[in-house]
Simulated assay, not measured.
Amino acid sequence: MRTAQLPEGDWIRGISIKQPWIAAVLAGAKPVENRPRPWKPGWVLLHASKSIDQPALRLPLVARAVRGRQLATGAVVGIARITDCHQDPAGTEPCSEWAHREAWHLLLRDVQELPLPVPARGQLGPWKPSPDLITRVFQQLPDFHP
Rank of each mutant, 00 (worst) to 15 (best):
A29C: 05
G74V: 06
R121Y: 09
Q112F: 01
V77N: 08
L116V: 15
L57I: 07
P131V: 02
P131R: 09
I22F: 07
I12W: 06
E113L: 03
A56R: 06
A72P: 02
L114S: 05
R69D: 01
P146L: 15
L107G: 04
T83H: 01
Q5R: 12
I15G: 09
L116C: 10
V66C: 04
R101H: 11
C95G: 14
D132T: 11
H145Y: 10
R81P: 01
A103P: 01
L133W: 05
E8S: 14
G68Q: 07
L71K: 03
L133G: 02
Q140N: 02
A48E: 01
G9H: 07
C85S: 14
C95L: 13
R109P: 00
A65W: 07
K40T: 11
T3Q: 10
G78M: 11
R67C: 07
A103T: 00
D53Q: 08
L116E: 14
A24H: 09
P60R: 09
P41S: 15
P129G: 02
I52E: 01
R109W: 01
E8N: 08
L124A: 11
S51W: 13
H105Y: 07
K18Q: 12
T83W: 01
W43Q: 10
W104C: 06
N34M: 10
V137K: 06
D110P: 10
G42L: 06
R69F: 02
A4K: 06
V32K: 02
M1N: 09
I22R: 11
D84I: 00
P115L: 02
A24I: 06
P115C: 04
Q139G: 09
L45A: 05
L71D: 02
Q19H: 08
H100I: 04
I79C: 11
V44Q: 03
K30T: 07
R109K: 14
I17W: 02
T73I: 15
D10P: 00
Q54L: 15
E33F: 09
H105L: 11
A103S: 12
P60T: 08
T135N: 11
S16K: 03
T135P: 00
D10R: 15
W11I: 05
W39I: 11
I79W: 05
R13T: 13
S49F: 01
D10M: 08
G125M: 05
Q87G: 04
P94C: 02
S130W: 00
E97H: 12
L6E: 02
W104I: 05
W21H: 15
A23P: 05
P131E: 12
S51Y: 03
D53G: 05
A56G: 10
Q19E: 15
L61V: 15
A90S: 14
C95E: 08
V111H: 10
E8L: 13
I22M: 10
A24L: 09
P20F: 10
A75N: 07
Q19D: 09
Q54P: 00
I52V: 15
E113P: 14
R101F: 07
R109E: 15
T73P: 01
T135H: 13
H86I: 07
P146C: 13
R35F: 12
A90V: 15
G68K: 03
C85Y: 06
R81C: 14
P142C: 06
W21D: 11
G9C: 01
G14A: 08
A80S: 12
